[in-house]
Design a protein around this nucleic acid. Sequence first.
DNA 1: TGTAATGATGACCTATCGGTCAAGAATTGA
DNA 2: TCAATTCTTGACCGATAGGTCATCATTACA
Lengths: 208, 208
Amino acid sequence: MARGRPREFDVDEAVDTALAVFWDRGYEGATLADLTDAIGIRRGSLYAAFGSKEALFDQVLLRYGETIARYIARAVLLPTAHDVVAAVWRGAVEATTDENTPHGCLIVHGALSCSADNDAVRARLAEIRRSDRQRLRERFRRAVDSGDLSAGADPEALATYVATVQHGIAVQARSGASRSELHSMVDLALAGLRRPEQPEQPEQPERS
Amino acid sequence: MARGRPREFDVDEAVDTALAVFWDRGYEGATLADLTDAIGIRRGSLYAAFGSKEALFDQVLLRYGETIARYIARAVLLPTAHDVVAAVWRGAVEATTDENTPHGCLIVHGALSCSADNDAVRARLAEIRRSDRQRLRERFRRAVDSGDLSAGADPEALATYVATVQHGIAVQARSGASRSELHSMVDLALAGLRRPEQPEQPEQPERS
DNA sequence: TGTAATGATGACCTATCGGTCAAGAATTGA
DNA sequence: TCAATTCTTGACCGATAGGTCATCATTACA
């Protein structure tokens, strides 16, 4: 089956290794030399297998979504809006403060800013963040429709809020905040969400 | 007084211009060519005036703190903890979504990740974020002492929470969120802070 | 008017960036 | 065994990164 000379490295493992490097240094901070050194291959092999640095990064983003950031897709499946919020924030804390991986979130610090040459990568990550926020908004809309959230709740603002805290967690983790510190912070944030989904709305029992 | 040939550009203006460039592109994303082109001087003049790219960045950080990020120092002077929180978040929204400046916060996206060479800059920004958070913590401690916050309140967690939302706002602004979207989000977040400074029994984190 | 001092200029430096390529090595199918 | 095919290797590419420097221009002071 495999015609020519067999590849001497595992592509999947290479993606995982590249993920670790990009996660640690960001897109531009990770050089070809960093990547090939970590993977243990030469430039030519990397380009034969992936095409370009940016194409490799695409593979890495896919992998990241399937593993590290999987907590988001899981969260929106939970039964109540409160469960969703808690799962996103708890998941973010866990993902960004694992002692076996770089701290922070690749989607956030991978290319928050960069040179003009790589603006496409920056825009790509911004788009991922944007679509994640939209997913939350849709989820909260359904929660309003089902009566899980009060009719006065603002799904848009709530989604933005959840994303804001989620990404803020990534920045804190990157700044050296510890896992337990961040969990305590999430305790506090969740306590504020017990009932206040509608800012100014007078208290109103759901029916009656 | 001024002995030799007079400088043909205004150093203060140059710092402001450099601030705009760094704010837009981050520390590494802003090249010497970007900076000198924007300022309108040659490399040699820049090095004669500032010493190095990093030294110029130091000047820029100073300027940023005195102007754009001044809202933080102002906020902690306000009479109540609630006022402080509101001022920080409102200030962050305003600072990160001004249509006349780049969106986002220089302290956050200036070097959230970078190459190994410039790790000192990354650490420096992280340190600024850390010390800002400490300032909030001290402020909230005083609020507990004075009875403004309940005795059960956790100044540490509250400071982390405020910083988390503040930095999350910067990420949202960088991702394209609008000023009004973010103000609506702050409405919601502030509503959650009306009285819940002491978290009730924290729910069980899934792991650790 | 001459000299010391300072800034401006543009050529130049080394290192490294992402990326390419020709040649050799290892495999399969005929 | 011999093509055909695929991967590996290391040298190499132009562009650009941050930074330096000799030379010249412009000023104040003696």
